[in-house]
Amino acid sequence: MNTVKHTMKLVSDEMSTSLMPFPVDKKLCYGWAQDIPRGGETILYTGCAYQLALLGHSYDRLIPLITKIKGIEKLKGLASKVITPSKDQVERSWQILRKMATILRKTGVEFGYLYEDEPYSGAILLEMGLIDEFKEVSKKVFSIFEKYNVKRVITVDPHTQYALLRGKEMNNTAIEIRSFYEMVGGFKASGVFTIHDSCLYSRFLGLRDAIRNIVRSSGINLIEDPMITGRDTSMCCGSPIAPVNYKVSDSIAKMRAESLKKLSPNVLVFCPFCYENLKAHVQVKDFMEVVNVE
């Protein structure tokens, strides 16, 4: 467990200097954005979550090596050599973000983007329990929003939404934080799926019903079972504890996938981290991958 302490110290140091949890080429975060104005009163904020989710697992697997390579400082060097997501993975996450931007535009929402100035939200610090460090990072995140005169932030994943809402409370700011899924609707899609709820959307952010309505009205045949996809029976994908214990995290993912498979071989998710944790065990698609945008 001491390894966790050291690793989180590294993450927190990295956050306080670069506002990113790991050393990463910033282009991975903003390279998807095309023809979106810089800044604006309303911004689309990815928090680099979809993009960083591709790297998270590689870091989680590296953590047990830290003690072996004698010293956390070396993690940085090692990580930059071994951790690069594949082109396909990057393209997939970028396509999802582009689709979200297109949908928002079609819904009539005017928004901008912060490009290389977009910071990571600090979600990992919050979820791991480094509350003081998260407060510091969150302050910086909100001051960037203020610098750009942002009045409304639209997030695209549950972890970023949760981190911003907690940060808003701590920083006492009037900036409005909205989730993409609160603002859009009228999707067209088809196929038979079951649903894996994001714990945060479902039980912390009150979006369980909104998401179900979106999916059901899209034309998707959603297979549910109160013991598997119920409000309080649907289990986590295990992703949040991957940095602490990768093995337990993966066995949670496996168990979750096995129970979902009893309902359908095809699983819908709304969170990049759920996607990454479940994908080795079941056929999983982000909802954005199945909706049609003409």
Binding site: M1, V4, E127, M128, G129, C199, L200, S202, R203, F204, D232, T233, S234, M235, C236, G238, S239, P240, I241, V244, N245, V248, I252
Partner: peptide, 10 residues
């Protein structure tokens, strides 16, 4: 022990 909580909230 707390570190192993997934904060699933159920």
């Amino acid at each position: 022990q707390a570190l192993l909580c997934c904060h699933s909230g159920a």
